[in-house]
Structure formats: structure tokens, C-alpha cells
Simulated scan of single mutants.
Amino acid sequence: MFSTYNMKKYGAELRKIRKYLGLNQSDVRRLSGLNEDTLTNIENGLVIPRYDTIEILSHVYKFDLMNLLFFFKNEYDILSLYEMLDLAITYNDILKLKEIRDNLINFKDDPELDNLIQYSDFDMLLAYTESNIIYFDKKSSSQSKHQAKNFLVETLKSNNPDFSISSFKKFNYNFLELRMLLLIAQFESDIENYSLSNSIMEFILKKMSIFDKYELVPVKFKLIIYFNLAYNYHNLYNHKKVYNYAVEGIELGKSTNDFSNLFFLYYRKGIAEYHLKHPDYMDSLRKSIYILDILDRHELKKLYIESTKKNYDIDIN
């Protein structure tokens, strides 16, 4: 959760309590041992007071000021925000990504909110969103993508100063940092560095597995990883790996009723089965086309049918 506090209103309430008790700031300084600057800053809403400061003032004011602070607290569900991001990423929805980015900027810059938050984490989320926009924008140049990847690397260094792409396995990561690591893997795939990209994504899957039983990992995020692993291994002609990751992704999507990437996973499964000489490869390919029909992705359906005929002489119709 992002926690924010309207400190101006909280400070004004403390001033009201102090005056109700007939105390001036000098009285409070004498009774609490706090200096006047500290009290002035708190009452003007310029700082979030330390816990021990609130305890001292609670004793002077004979009022639970920590409990009062919670009345001026807003919480924003970070998991819901991740779900919105994952949905936009799944459908390459740049407009939605830009909307999320703009909302984050407005949230951070709104002077009325006095949002005292963990700005390093907030800036990470903003960097992640902005980098996704660059990644999915077809107009982005190779240079801008390279710069976006380097920006992600520098952002990850804020918590792990020695971080580098070559040493990514040496560090522990939170959920947001794992997402940034995935985007770095996607940038690596873009320049056909498939082996490094796969190594990063398989590392992420392993790191996330500990949270699976608690259902803390958003499904779409994992499906994005399976989607990209199947794509990368296809380009490395490792059809067994393609098949395995496609099946894992399909089972996850079916078990959670999330069909957003199933058309791609069934398609990759079918092509892998074709190369591995599995007799039921056509069943997988037709399921891919069927799902595209359900999703009204008619242009993509046409592209799949035409490219399959051209590249493999397979008629899916």
C-alpha cells in the first residue's frame, strides 16, 4: 500500500488541541522538551513527526495523537495498481499506460494532498511505467529503448548499489523490482539476447514461487513471463522448452480463468508440437485461433493463419 497523510489538516488539528488546552508553543516546549521549530513544522504540516515525538506530545496533550494521525491517512492498493499495469502490458495498451503514468505524476505533485510517501519506491513505480511505455511504443528508437533499459538499471541501484545486469542473481528483490527485472529481460530479448533474457525470467519465476501458496503473485504477471519465455525459446529452436513453458502458462490461465495470453501460448505449444512431431499439434493451433475469435482479435487471427501457412505450410482453417 502507498500510505499518504494530509499533514496540514493533522497539524491544524494539533494546533486546535493545543489552544483548547490554553497552551502556547513555549508552554509545549517547556513541558515536552521539543524545540519550537519542531512544533512549528508539525503544526504547519511540513513533516511527519517521529513516533517518539508523537508519544511525547500525546502525554502533554493527554490525547492519543498517533490514533488521531490515522484519521488523516489514505491508503492506495498497490496490488490493484499492479493489476491495472499488467492488463495494459498484456494488451500493449500504451494509452492506458500513459494514463497510469499521468495519474501517478498528478498524485505525487498534488499540493493539496501533502503526500508524504516513500518517494524512492514511488519513483521506481514511475520509472517502471515510463519504461513500459517506451518498450511498447512502436515509434521508440533503439537508442531510446537502450536508454530506458539503462534507466531501469540505475533505478534498481537505489536499493542495490552494486546491481548490474550481469550480476542480477546476487541480489534480493521486492515485487516491483522483480517487475523491473522482467522489463530488462524483455529489452534484452528485443536485441536478440535471448539466453540472458531467459536466465533473468527463470530467476524471477523461482523467486516468486515462494509466494504462490499465498496467492500474492498476480496471474497476468506470471502469464507475461510464460509468454516471453515461450517466445524466446522458440527463437533459440529449443522446442521442448517452448512446449514446457507453454503448457505451464496454459494450465495457469485455465485454472484462474484468465484467457488473456492463452491464444499465444496455445499457438507456441502447437508449433513446438509440430517440430517435436506430436500428432495433436493441430488441436493446439486451432484452440489458439478459436480463442482469438472469442476475443475479437480478428486481425491477429488473420496474421496467425497467414504466417503459419507461409512458414510451416500448415493450414489452420
Rank of each mutant, 00 (worst) to 15 (best):
K169C: 02
K139S: 13
S166I: 10
I89D: 05
A230E: 02
Y290I: 06
L125E: 03
Y194Q: 06
L65K: 02
H298W: 14
I134D: 03
V153W: 01
F107T: 02
D123Q: 12
Y20I: 09
K241N: 10
N35E: 07
L156R: 04
Y267H: 12
Y10W: 02
R179N: 06
L176T: 05
E154D: 14
S140F: 04
Y61I: 03
F72R: 00
K254Y: 08
K301V: 01
L97G: 03
L23W: 04
A12R: 13
Y5L: 13
Y128C: 01
Y231T: 08
D190Q: 12
T90L: 08
K309H: 07
Y20F: 15
Q147H: 13
D110L: 08
E154R: 14
Y245T: 01
I314N: 03
M201D: 03
L85A: 00
V219P: 00
Y128T: 01
S142W: 14
L23S: 05
T308D: 09
D102Q: 14
S32Y: 08
L223I: 13
G33E: 07
I184N: 10
G249I: 05
L300A: 05
F107V: 03
I134N: 02
Y266R: 05
M7A: 07
S288M: 03
F71W: 13
E112I: 10
F171I: 05
F175H: 07
I210E: 12
E215Q: 10
F2C: 03
S80N: 14
I48F: 12
D313R: 09
Y51D: 06
Y237P: 00
P49T: 01
S142E: 15
F107K: 03
L182F: 11
F187V: 04
M180P: 02
R18G: 07
Y266M: 06
G249R: 04
D114L: 14
Y245A: 04
H239I: 07
N238G: 05
L152A: 06
F259I: 07
I250V: 08
A12C: 11
M201Y: 00
N174W: 10
Y274T: 10
I316K: 01
M124P: 03
E192L: 15
I200Q: 04
H239M: 14
L104M: 14
E299D: 10
Y82W: 11
E99C: 09
L178W: 00
K16A: 08
L292N: 04
E112R: 11
S131I: 02
D86Y: 12
D293L: 09
Y266T: 05
L126W: 03
L285F: 09
I224W: 04
R297M: 12
T90W: 02
L57G: 00
N257L: 12
I17A: 08
F227Y: 15
L181F: 03
E299M: 09
V242L: 05
L223M: 13
H146F: 14
N160S: 14
N317K: 10
I204G: 02
N193C: 07
I48W: 06
G270M: 06
G11I: 04
V219T: 15
N67I: 09
F263I: 00
F171A: 00
F122Y: 14
D93N: 09
T38I: 11
I210N: 09
K207W: 11
I210R: 07
R268K: 12
K213N: 13
V60L: 11
I165Y: 01
K287T: 12
D123A: 08
L68H: 11
S260K: 07
N311G: 00
L116K: 11
